[in-house]
Amino acid sequence: MNTFAFKSFVIVGLGIGLSASALAQTPSMASCEQIRTQIQAQVGIRTKPDTAMLDILSEHPECRFTAAEVFRAAFGDRPMPRNTRRDGQRNMRDDDD
Score class of each variant (00 low, 15 high):
Met1Ile: 03
Met1His: 05
Asn2Tyr: 04
Thr3Arg: 10
Thr3Pro: 02
Phe4Val: 13
Phe4Lys: 10
Ala5Leu: 14
Phe6His: 11
Lys7Met: 14
Lys7His: 02
Lys7Trp: 03
Ser8Phe: 08
Val10His: 13
Val10Ala: 15
Val12Lys: 14
Val12Asn: 12
Gly15Ile: 10
Ile16Asp: 06
Gly17Pro: 02
Gly17Leu: 13
Ser19Asp: 04
Ser19His: 04
Ser19Asn: 11
Ala20Asn: 06
Ser21Thr: 11
Leu23Lys: 10
Leu23His: 11
Ala24Tyr: 07
Ala24Cys: 12
Ala24Ser: 11
Gln25Leu: 15
Ser28Ala: 08
Ala30Arg: 14
Ala30Asp: 05
Ala30Gln: 15
Ser31Gln: 14
Ser31His: 06
Cys32Arg: 08
Cys32Pro: 01
Glu33Thr: 14
Glu33Gly: 05
Ile35Tyr: 01
Ile35Pro: 00
Ile35Cys: 02
Arg36Asn: 07
Gln38Lys: 13
Gln40Gly: 06
Gln40Cys: 09
Ala41Ile: 03
Gln42Lys: 11
Val43Ser: 14
Thr47Trp: 01
Thr47Glu: 03
Lys48Asn: 08
Lys48Gly: 09
Lys48Ala: 12
Lys48Gln: 12
Asp50Glu: 07
Thr51Lys: 14
Ala52Cys: 04
Met53Val: 10
Leu54Ser: 09
Ile56Leu: 15
Ile56Asn: 07
Ser58Thr: 08
Glu59Arg: 13
Glu59Gly: 11
His60Cys: 03
His60Ala: 05
Glu62Ile: 04
Cys63Lys: 12
Cys63Pro: 02
Cys63Phe: 09
Phe65Lys: 14
Phe65Tyr: 14
Phe65Ser: 12
Phe65Gln: 13
Thr66Asn: 11
Thr66Val: 08
Ala67Trp: 02
Ala67Arg: 06
Val70Trp: 03
Phe71Met: 01
Phe71Tyr: 13
Arg72Leu: 02
Arg72Asn: 03
Arg72Asp: 01
Ala73Trp: 00
Phe75Tyr: 06
Phe75Pro: 00
Gly76Val: 01
Asp77Met: 03
Arg78Lys: 15
Arg78Ala: 06
Met80Tyr: 08
Met80Ala: 12
Met80Thr: 10
Pro81Ile: 03
Arg82Gln: 12
Asn83Ile: 03
Thr84Ile: 06
Thr84Tyr: 03
Arg85Lys: 13
Arg85Val: 08
Arg85Gly: 15
Arg86Phe: 10
Asp87Glu: 02
Asp87Leu: 01
Gly88Gln: 08
Gln89His: 09
Gln89Gly: 05
Met92Pro: 00
Arg93Pro: 00
Asp94Trp: 06
Asp95His: 07
Asp96Val: 01
Asp97His: 04
